[in-house]
């Protein structure tokens, strides 16, 4: 049960150390959704109500700069999306558009927060991930300054 979801979750660095039973719990709490190419998965500025894990397919990450959407990266299987908005309780910080047919695991924000508070391994994993991003951001800024 939930084999493909668990495999996708295991591809995400932050979930690598989370026991399989807990990954199955995440899969059980979420639902598998399909997007057609060019379909919007989530939109910048909208309330962050869902977190997504891409299981199959590719999607573009866009951010508005000077009022225009600019593609900043492409994400694929094993990518976690929307978690910052949900954790910070802020609107989504970017837009995700399916560039191919995409299958994703969708978890609503309330469940995601509950999972974080009830499963210590998950919240630890998220803290580690955010710390990693913080360091990456600091390095990036240091490079820009130098």
């Amino acid at each position: 049960m939930y084999t493909s979801e668990v495999a996708s979750l295991q591809r995400i660095a932050m979930f690598r150390d989370v026991p399989i039973a807990k990954l199955k719990l995440i899969a059980m709490a979420g639902r598998r959704v399909h997007y057609r190419p060019a379909e919007v998965v989530l939109r910048q500025g909208e309330p962050a109500l869902m977190v997504y894990v891409i299981m199959d397919g590719q999607a573009d990450v866009l951010r508005e700069r000077d009022g225009k959407p600019v593609k900043v990266s492409t994400v694929g299987p094993g990518s976690l999306m929307g978690e910052l908005g949900v954790v910070l309780d802020k609107p989504y910080l970017g837009t995700i558009i399916a560039s191919t047919a995409v299958t994703a695991l969708q978890i609503d924000s309330v469940t995601f927060i509950e999972l974080l508070s009830q499963v210590p391994q998950l919240s630890m994993a998220l803290i580690r991930e955010l710390a990693r991003r913080l360091m990456a951001s600091s390095d990036h800024q240091a490079k820009v300054v130098s």
Partner: peptide, 18 residues
Amino acid sequence: PELALAAEAPQSPPDGGV
């Protein structure tokens, strides 16, 4: 400063976090 950076980070997450 760390928290300030963390707050800024989501504005331009290096690996596309949203």
